[in-house]
Nucleic acid binder design. Structure first.
Length: 280
DNA sequence: CGTATTGTTTTGCC
DNA sequence: GGGCAAAACAATAC
């Protein structure tokens, strides 16, 4: 679920609602996502710290505290819900905490953050600044930042014999794209997802660069894509699912030429494209 | 029952 | 050691 636009939607809500708040209590119900860090370490490192800033890098959500950083990756199905205790949630009717709520942070503004993750692919890490920068430096450039340029993308594709689909899913090449936005970006750029990275011309790389930026910008402005279960901490859904041009449109007419959209597994992921508009 | 699912890391091969 | 592809991770929905 959460790719860059969804994580950004979550970040914006949390930045507004939790910046400056103190974490007063920590309830850890499942420890699997903590990368071996102990419960005691977690509780000590979070309790009575203030949330100084809520940032984002790629798909990572970053809570800067006084002397450490709480780093969250939501994986496939992670979500953060901001709510008062034991209220029935609005859009779906489950009680919190439910069996998928693995972490709760109580704040001094009367709210609690419920970290849910049914599939448990998410990760929580409490890191010092050095550990944080080592981890985040492994990521490629922010696609909406100044360091991401057509030249940078082109350089990163040279000598690469994997498909462009696989390469765009690789967070070292550019950080924040997932399956949905890779398919959408490739459609807008008119590039077939199976094209080898090395075989993409400078001109097509520029097109791809522009497509990635426009897709992500529009998706951020739409509050993300709610295909199955994405919701922000206030349980609002995004709107970008209404603007998807290939993802989830298998067999439907291409918006440009009317040809049925193809869906096949590529790079181990369901991959959508128009066989006429997207060439090798 | 089998298939599919929005992500990353590990494994093994070249 | 790097790049690549497949497997693994876990739970739910259809």
């Amino acid at each position: 679920m959460p790719e860059l636009p969804e994580v950004e939607a979550i970040r914006r809500v949390l930045s507004k609602d939790t910046t400056g708040c103190k974490i007063t209590k920590v309830f850890l119900r499942k420890t699997r996502m903590m990368r071996g860090q102990s419960i005691l370490f977690f509780k000590k490192g979070l309790t009575n710290r203030h949330i100084l800033k809520v940032a984002r890098r790629g798909k990572y959500l970053i809570f800067r505290l006084e002397d450490n950083t709480f780093l969250v990756h939501l994986g496939m199905s992670g979500q953060i819900i901001s709510i008062s205790e034991n209220k029935i949630t609005g859009s779906r009717s489950f009680f919190l905490p439910d069996k998928h709520t693995h972490l709760i942070l109580w704040l001094n503004n009367g709210k609690a953050l419920y970290f849910r993750d049914p599939r448990m692919f998410g990760r929580y890490m409490l890191l010092n600044s050095k550990e944080e920068s080592i981890l985040l430096s492994k990521l490629g450039p922010e696609p909406l930042g100044a360091l991401f340029t057509p030249a940078c993308l082109y350089q990163n594709l040279q000598g690469r014999t994997a498909s462009i689909k696989a390469l765009l899913l690789n967070q070292k090449i550019v950080a924040g794209l997932g399956n949905i936005y890779v398919d959408e970006s490739l459609f807008r750029a008119g590039i077939h997802p199976a094209t080898l990275g090395d075989r993409i011309s400078k001109k097509h790389t520029k097109d791809l660069y522009e497509s990635i930026k426009s897709v992500l910008t529009e998706a951020v402005n739409a509050g993300g894509t709610s295909i199955s279960d994405f919701q922000d901490p206030k349980q609002r859904t995004g709107n970008f699912q209404h603007y998807l041009q290939v993802y989830g449109r298998k067999g439907k007419a291409c918006i440009l030429c009317g040809t049925p959209i193809i869906k096949e597994v590529l790079a181990q992921r369901g991959t959508h494209w128009c066989p006429k508009c997207q060439k090798y």
